[in-house]
Design a protein around this nucleic acid. Sequence first.
DNA 1: ATGTCACCTGGTAGGTGA
Length: 254
Amino acid sequence: MKLATWNVNSLAVRLPQLLAWLALHRPDAMVLQETKLSDDKFPHAEIEAAGWRVQWFGQKTYNGVALLSKTEAADIVRNIPGFADPLARVITGTVEGLRMVGAYFPNGQAPGSDKFDYKMQWLRALRDWLADEIALHPKLVLLGDFNIAPDDRDVYDPVAWAGQIHCTDEERDHLKKLIALGLVDAFRLFDQAPKSWSWWDYRNLAFRKNQGLRIDLILVSEALKASVQACSIDRATRKNERPSDHAPVLLTLA
DNA sequence: ATGTCACCTGGTAGGTGA
């Protein structure tokens, strides 16, 4: 079984690339972030015509997520139950017995800002809910744009980024607490090339200089760990015309 | 050395978010 996550940074712009990517990789299930589309504008017909079912949850201009699957996803949940949030950030569904939680974590802007406070509240709410969700669904995958670089090896210049957004101790502590629910970072189950990033700023020729962060993650529950066969970042998409600033991340399960 | 992109409102740019 092949799973994927991709922050498309506007599905209105990236739909042709998404359709090409689906045709090439044919994932069994995939989550998208930053669709930036209200629900009435979501291009479900094109995705369905390509052979995927799709559930979506969006808003105008910002955020927005979707769950694509070859077979119908069940028990769809939008956002974090119990956490009132005006922003469309999470979509959850069960595909082939797998509970998939696709999430666009808040960016957080800068430590000390209102947006950072919101990020902390959101992370607490996610953890509280996921604790219950994992108990109900032991085979669970949490994947998406985490907007947190787990470790210094996930940062091209850890000295420059020390204490900056995506790299603060507070964010990393929250990520550790998520992992402590019984999850594992699938990418790190395997030997990986150093300087493996999933996001490169559009500015400063960052991709050409390979200056990026690994902030798009796939966490699998302990019940799934033994069945993980591969996890990789598809940086080739970043060489496309009009690329997203994020690359897709892929997971292969037995 | 610098270097972007996508969206909005309301325009023959400027502001915001990332």
